[in-house]
């Protein structure tokens, strides 16, 4: 198992290297360059433009730029933002935590909603409740996330005024930042007003985010439960006269691995997939930061942001694999027997 893990780690490094090359090239292939963009309507001579380009190292050959970037990146230095003049890490940190907070909220919501519904559907397999659930899952699955977001803003924010239309917390809540996860910070500092505000801001984006993952969670868990219920060991347990609750607990344990995998994969892809949603809800996360940086051609921020996204995706998959091995007795035995 250690060998597998080491292999996977090595692969992770290779994958990140590929990603860095791709993003480095792509961002430079897009027409328009940072200097021209930030100059905007300023009156600037051609010489000064050239000077600004060299100030940011943009006049060097791409391969040299990449070398310099890589040399610094391995030391944890992702460079400085061209437009804001601060280290990229200072911008990425809070944005990453904002995204993580949203993704965690969305995932929790999917679990809280999805697991009971899947259980219900599996128990009532083939009956009305099951069919309604299936239809719901398909609805969630087919709903374009950004449209769902917009519709919730329209009805729940604009017309009913129940939730804010966007952002992460009310400015006036006066939250002290410690961890960067606002809900956690509010609890630590005992700031109830900030907690309320942070939760209120989280509701709509996490529902939009959870729509698709709840649907896939329900599908997978329900499917696993149904097929497990037809397996021999369940009949054996049933024959031994186990009560229904105990029986379902056993089944749930066995259905957990595929469900954890699908949730892990979704968690990983949500980190990168929330870009459009973050735009809709002005959620100050990684996606919004990268979109802004692409517009401004702030190369270091785009590079750093995409790398962080890809790294989280890869690391989450790694963790999911490990959990899978730990959870699934069959795999564990297979490993031991080798």
């Amino acid at each position: 198992m250690l060998q597998t893990l080491l292999d996977r780690l090595l692969q992770t490094v290779v994958v990140l290297l590929f990603v860095s090359v791709i993003v480095f090239l792509l961002v430079r292939l897009i027409p328009g360059d940072p200097v021209d963009i930030f100059l905007g309507e300023a009156t600037v001579s051609d010489e000064q433009r050239a000077m600004l380009r060299s100030e940011h190292g943009l006049d060097r050959p791409i391969i040299v730029q990449y070398g310099a970037f890589l040399a610094k990146a391995v030391q944890g230095d992702l460079g400085r933002s061209i437009t804001q003049r601060v280290p990229v890490a200072e911008l990425l940190g809070p944005a990453f935590l904002a995204t993580i907070e949203l993704v965690i909220a969305g995932t929790l919501l999917s679990v809280v909603v999805g697991v009971p519904i899947a259980l219900l559907a599996a128990m009532r397999h083939g009956r009305t409740a099951d069919q309604v659930t299936s239809a719901l899952a398909l609805f969630g699955y087919s709903m374009p996330t950004f449209w769902l977001g917009i519709m919730m803003i329209l009805v729940l924010s604009v017309h009913l005024g129940w939730f804010p239309t966007g952002g992460r917390i009310a400015m006036s809540a006066g939250l002290e930042r410690h961890t960067g996860l606002f809900v956690v910070d509010a609890i630590i500092t005992g700031n109830m007003r900030a907690l309320g505000s942070a939760l209120q801001h989280l509701v709509l984006p996490s529902i939009a985010l959870a729509a698709v993952s709840t649907a896939s969670l329900m599908q997978v868990l329900r499917g696993s439960l149904i097929s497990i219920s037809q397996e021999e060991f369940v009949s054996a347990l049933r024959a031994r006269g186990l009560g229904r609750p105990t029986l379902w607990r056993h089944m749930l344990r066995n259905a957990a691995p595929p469900t954890v995998i699908i949730m892990g994969v979704r968690f990983g892809s949500l980190i990168g997939g929330g870009i459009v949603l973050e735009t809709v809800f002005s959620w100050p996360g990684l996606g919004l930061l990268i979109i802004d940086a692409i517009r401004a051609r702030d190369y270091p921020v785009v590079q750093g942001g995409v790398l962080v996204m890809a790294a989280s995706f890869v690391i989450v998959s790694l963790v999911v694999d490990v959990i899978h091995i730990l959870l699934d007795p069959r795999i564990r035995q297979g490993e031991a027997g080798r």
Binding site: V158, P164, T165, G166, G167, V280, S282
Partner: peptide, 10 residues
């Protein structure tokens, strides 16, 4: 607040 509707709502 880049989003117009969010700006107005805020």
């Amino acid at each position: 607040i880049p989003e117009l509707s969010s700006r107005i709502a805020a």
